[in-house]
């Protein structure tokens, strides 16, 4: 009975959030240069990106149009490519904070040494995510580099040592590291990491060339069970990412029910100025461009495709009994012809 009430209230909550769609989480794809060449990269980034980094002032002009939300802060999340390849990162952070916004960064940790750590904290960085994809051998394989594990290990230790920083580690789970999860968990606990988020990999970008990156259905169930089990351990806050709806595991593998907020609370400014939701969403969903449009006007007046997802009730979603709660799964699952989501997590556990 209680779960029915909770679910019903949550559906109303989602409707409410969608109707009011406050922008309070803004990705900035500040560079597409990268110092690694990861097998699973959804961005297809490279060392020699064809796009120049977006000048800070161009981003700030767009950011200046963003209103303060009614609850909490706006957070700008710098992503890439590898944000640490920009040499003006501290300046970017300071300018964002001057505008009463918060900021964080997603990094592979390769360039995150002590000097950089302190400099970024001094520039007001408040949130950080570092990727770790297995033990030394597996991480190196996934990251296509034999020298990077020590660097990411050092970066994790630095980040975990500073209590002010809202920090988590993310792990992309695949066939080669699924059996290492207990080992990674113990390593993170020993490093005093408080939060750990697990993803699976969807077939976009470079990952499509590596079938071993995709979990089988039984491995996916194993992943869900591992998360449920580890959530009983108070030493680390583990959760499944918000990448998709997981049916009977909902509210057991995360703090609450599934809600894809792309285009509802989450926006992005991509490397070429395009305005969208999460950066891994198909670029055909771009809603405008900061070089021609006012970001906030686009946010307020467009984004219908994100806020009314009835169009996803097609293909395998057309007759799904969970559509009300799932609404076509994570928005980044809709690519190409958009006839089906690329991945149906619920199907994997059925």
């Amino acid at each position: 009975m209680l779960s029915i009430i909770k679910k019903a209230a949550f559906r109303q909550f989602k409707k409410f959030e969608t109707k009011h769609h406050e922008l309070n989480y803004l990705f900035w794809e500040c560079t597409t240069r990268c110092n690694l060449n990861c097998l699973h990269c959804g961005s297809d980034c490279s060392k020699d990106s064809s796009h120049p980094d977006m000048p800070l002032e161009d981003f700030l002009s767009a950011l200046d149009t963003v209103k303060q939300p009614s609850v909490g802060n706006v957070i700008v999340v710098l992503t890439g490519g590898e944000p640490l390849l920009r040499n003006d990162l501290e300046m970017c952070g300071r300018e964002i904070r001057k505008r009463e916004k918060r900021w964080g960064m997603v990094t592979n940790g390769q360039l995150y040494d002590r000097d950089k750590h302190i400099a970024l904290l001094n520039a007001g960085m408040g949130a950080l995510t570092i990727s770790l994809d297995g033990n030394k051998t597996t991480h190196s394989w996934m990251r296509n580099s034999t020298t990077n594990f020590e660097k990411v290990d050092n970066a994790i230790a630095l980040a975990a040592s500073y209590s002010r920083l809202n920090f988590d580690v993310v792990t992309c789970v695949h066939q080669k590291n699924i059996d290492e999860l207990p080992q990674i968990r113990d390593y993170l606990i020993q490093k005093k990491v408080k939060a750990w988020r697990l993803f699976t990999i969807i077939p976009i970008g470079r990952s499509t060339q590596h079938p071993e990156l995709f979990l089988t259905d039984s491995q996916f169930v194993g992943l869900m069970d591992f998360i449920v089990h580890t959530r009983q351990n108070p030493e680390i806050d583990i959760m499944f990412s918000c990448e998709g709806y997981v049916g009977k595991y909902e509210a057991k593998v995360r703090d609450s029910y599934y809600f894809c907020r792309a285009g509802i609370n989450i926006g992005s400014i991509l490397i070429d100025g395009s305005i969208s939701a999460c950066p891994n969403i198909d670029r055909s969903f771009v809603q405008g461009n900061i070089y021609q449009d006012n970001l906030m006007e686009v946010w307020e007046n467009k984004f219908h495709v994100f806020r009314n997802r009835k169009w996803t009730k097609t293909g395998k979603c057309a007759h799904c009994s969970d559509f009300k709660d799932c609404q076509g799964n994570g928005f980044h699952n809709w690519h190409g012809e958009k006839k089906h989501p690329l991945v149906c997590h619920k199907e994997k556990i059925s």
Binding site: Y25, R102, G104, R261, A262, P279
Partner: peptide
């Protein structure tokens, strides 16, 4: 908003994080 969030025990949703993003920064500095 708070009522609905509270009723569904989803108060943490006010501090959501995007799939491939960072946690929110609600810390004091």
């Amino acid at each position: 908003r708070k009522f609905l969030g509270g009723l569904s025990f989803a108060t943490l949703l006010f501090a959501f994080q995007a799939c491939y993003g960072t946690p929110q920064d609600d810390g004091l500095d």
